[in-house]
Design a protein around this nucleic acid. Structure first.
Lengths: 110, 110
DNA sequence: ACCAGTACATAGTAACGCTAAATAGTGGTC
DNA sequence: GACCACTATTTAGCGTTACTATGTACTGGT
């Protein structure tokens, strides 16, 4: 998708994944597939798994190992209270940034 | 402003500065001050200068040294054709991302 | 002489997404 | 029964970017 998107995802991808998990629990492979379906055509698998490790270490999610009929066991991630709190902050930060940038665009930064 | 904003600025700050320059030419100290006024309260000076070096090396801006009455000479940056083209791409990428994330927020990723 | 404000520069660090490759389980096909 | 495709996770190494911290330099006021 280009270098520009890569850099833009830094700091937002974490929020995106948490928002996905806020809707319902999911596992890595599923999240990657969903992101791809939604237009993030070349999110690397490794990227998602590394991110999941991070949010687990930060304590934003609870993890459960669930057997799969189609392959190795899945690690299902569920957003917990701490994660929900962090997601709140994410939305606040995102809104601020999106507002500022939207403003800039109107102001002739076109 | 917090670590979250720091990470989010990666990939967007460049576009923000280019958008500022699209409105009119400016120099580093001025850009930093303007960003601070507009709510990016703790953008580090060094960050802006380093970014300006980068966009100059990429050929997005033309530079002119202008004497100042109040201090050392200013380096005034002006967006050129290449920079304008890059800014276009930035808006495209940004729009896509902002749309996706807005969608996620509506879909119960709250 | 000193200090605040203006103005620019840069070495080192941390965080994060990507590349690439490895491991492992299931099912189908020849 | 060997191979391949799909599912599923992991991890080492890399490049880019913003921040920290510090240094340089010019002007004006006290």
């Amino acid at each position: 998708m280009g270098k520009q998107m890569t850099e833009m995802l830094k700091g937002t991808l974490e929020g995106i994944v948490l928002a996905i998990l806020a809707a319902r629990s999911a596992y890595g492979y599923e999240i990657t597939a969903r992101l791809r379906d939604e237009g993030f055509s070349d999110i690397a698998e490794g990227t998602v798994y590394a991110l999941l490790v991070r949010i687990e270490q930060k304590g934003f999610v609870d993890v459960e190992k669930v057997p799969s009929e189609k392959g190795p066991p899945r690690k299902v991630y569920t957003l917990n209270a701490q994660g929900r709190e962090f997601l709140e902050e994410f939305w606040t930060t995102w809104s601020f940034l999106a507002d500022r940038i939207g403003q800039l665009r109107e102001d002739g930064g076109k």
